[in-house]
Computed example of a mutant assay.
Amino acid sequence: MNQSKTFKTLAVAGLGLALIAAATPASAREKIIPAEKLFPYLDKFMKVPAQERSRMRLRYILRSEGKPMGGVKVSVVETNGATTVLPVGDDGEFDRLPTLTQLNGKAKVVVDVPAEKKFSISMIPAPVLKLTQEYDARELALTVSESNAAMRKAAGPALALMVPKLPGIGFIGAQSGQIVYGDGRQAALEMVGGVPVFYPEAHKGAARVKLSRTPTRVAFDDGKK
């Protein structure tokens, strides 16, 4: 499993990539897209009780020709005309997402790009963890188990079995790490595509995870070799 495949394109029940090809142009410089289409799965995820999804979030990243499309002006417009800017970083990731009220209210998203511009959006589940050199292994295990449960609940009974299981957490930029067990034993973290990854089910009894350096980002591993 390479790092790019593992940490950049995680898909959930086939909804990780939504092609924007049928958007209706408002002018030569805009595309107008229903919010629920541009942000697939978001409304279902946000309907899960907040306390059950507090350990994870969804990242939405704009891409064009396989590359992140950053610096784009995007706004969500509600049926009453209220407009909210959705900032997009240089990496193409939305820094703000529509609210559940906006999604349920059939709000539209205006993207400031030429009408003929084709782009897509990647949806990536991400753990909510601070960046540090040492982690409580039990907290990491809870992050994995509760996030998997939240994803299945959001998908609903019909699609729950199609949601891929997230088996571990990768520490991007950490270089290496050690697992410390309750009895003092230690073991090296598995390396996947140059990233140290902790798999809770494979390391029962782990107490701490110590990294050689603070990671630049944490991400779920998709379990694919």
Rank of each mutant, 00 (worst) to 15 (best):
Y60V: 03
E65I: 05
M56P: 02
S75T: 04
R53M: 07
P68D: 07
V74H: 00
P68I: 08
M56S: 12
R59M: 13
V72L: 00
L58V: 03
L58G: 01
E65Q: 09
V48P: 07
P68L: 10
V76D: 00
P49W: 05
K73T: 12
R63T: 04
R59H: 12
G66D: 13
E52M: 12
G70H: 04
G66S: 08
K47N: 11
A50P: 11
S64D: 14
L58C: 03
S75E: 15
E52D: 12
L62T: 02
M56D: 04
M56I: 02
K73L: 14
V72I: 15
V72R: 05
A50R: 13
K47Y: 05
R53N: 09
S54R: 08
I61P: 00
R53S: 06
G71W: 10
K67L: 10
V48K: 04
G70S: 14
S54C: 11
L62M: 15
V76A: 07
Q51A: 13
V48E: 00
R57E: 02
V48Q: 04
I61T: 11
R59Q: 05
R55H: 08
R59W: 14
A50Y: 14
A50D: 13
R57G: 06
S75H: 11
R63N: 04
L58A: 01
K47G: 00
G71H: 07
K47I: 01
G71P: 08
G66Q: 12
V72P: 07
Y60A: 10
K73E: 15
S75Y: 11
S54N: 07
V72C: 02
E52C: 04
R59A: 09
Q51W: 14
R55S: 09
A50C: 07
E52V: 08
L62H: 04
I61H: 02
R63H: 14
V48Y: 01
V48W: 01
S64C: 07
P49A: 13
G70K: 02
G71Q: 04
R59P: 05
V48N: 00
S64I: 10
R63F: 11
P68M: 14
K67T: 10
Y60E: 02
V48F: 01
R55W: 04
Y60N: 10
M56L: 15
Y60W: 11
M69K: 08
K47C: 13
S54P: 04
V72Y: 03
Y60S: 01
V48I: 01
R63E: 11
R57F: 12
E52N: 08
I61Y: 00
E52P: 01
V76G: 02
V48G: 08
G71F: 01
V74P: 03
V74A: 02
K47E: 15
S54E: 14
K47M: 13
R53V: 13
E52A: 15
M69R: 06
V74N: 02
R59C: 04
M69N: 01
R57V: 00
I61S: 08
K67Y: 08
G70C: 13
